[in-house]
């Protein structure tokens, strides 16, 4: 199948190095300590953060750092065919773990010993790249909750189809079965906190694709910073400072 036309356009009209439209909103769940809504094209996710708060299960309590927990779910209506998504299936357990580890890398957990931070992410609409979108939403929600972090974590995916590296795969491109590299970085230091790949790629092409994904992460970070800045200004006004 032709994923990039000879004119250099992808199926949805993007060029290979272009991301989908990003949209973000801080504060989507009032009850949570911090929350955010994040869109990458038609992939729409919501994240809510509770904590730091008392550890619910004492046996899990850590005395030198905070306990970070994460739960990833997909709404029943998130894909076209309405099917009941079992909670705790393999895929969502794995993604939960991936998000938890990625977020743990940037949260200053040592500042909050004997406490617990819960991150809930839910996919409202799935169109490829859900784990990237979830990480981006979680970053925003953590920032909204005021949890101390070393840096933002942002994530983006890239693939390799028709001998072309493609940034930010959508569902059609993702299900082509080609290589799919998901990268998460700390944008200030460009340290990699997440790196996953499906399928295989030769080393030199892999580096190109990963480089592309990293550039994507940086673009997401710029956008997230803008959103945070805007929100801060809004609050400033609200508090009359």
């Amino acid at each position: 199948m032709e994923f990039v036309s000879p004119e250099g356009l992808r199926l949805d009209g993007r060029r290979p190095m272009e991301m989908r439209q990003l949209r973000a909103k801080i504060g989507a769940v009032d009850k949570a300590h911090g929350s955010a809504y994040f869109e990458m094209g038609n992939t729409k996710v919501i994240a809510a953060v509770y904590g730091p708060r008392e550890v619910q299960n004492r046996s899990q309590q850590l005395n030198d750092q905070a306990l970070v927990r994460c739960e990833y779910t997909m709404a029943n209506f998130s894909t076209g065919d309405r099917r009941r998504k079992p909670k705790g299936d393999r895929r969502s357990t794995e993604i939960s773990l991936v998000i938890r580890q990625t977020m743990e890398a940037c949260i200053m957990t040592h500042l909050m010993p004997r406490s617990q931070i819960d991150i809930f992410v839910q996919v409202l609409q799935a169109d490829g790249g859900t784990r990237s979108a979830c990480i981006n939403a979680a970053t925003l929600a953590l920032a909204d909750a005021g949890i101390p972090m070393h840096d933002l974590v942002t994530s983006c995916s890239a693939g390799y189809l028709n001998s072309t590296p493609l940034l930010d795969l959508n569902y059609v491109e993702d299900s082509a079965g080609g290589p799919d590299v998901t990268v998460g970085i700390l944008p200030k230091s460009t340290k990699v906190t997440l790196l996953q790949m499906d399928s295989k790629l030769p080393m030199d092409i892999f580096e190109n694709v990963m480089q592309l994904a990293t550039e994507g992460c940086k673009a997401v970070a710029n956008y997230i910073r803008e959103v945070l800045l805007e929100k801060t200004k809004e609050r400033q006004k609200f508090h009359g400072v």
């Binding site: 199926l11 949805d12 009209g13 993007r14 272009e18 989908r20 439209q21 094209g41 038609n42 076209g80 065919d81 169109d127 959508n170 059609v172």
Partner: peptide, 9 residues
């Protein structure tokens, strides 16, 4: 099935 795809102009 209803399929929704983005279409960038």
């Amino acid at each position: 099935v209803k399929v929704v795809r983005e279409h960038y102009l």
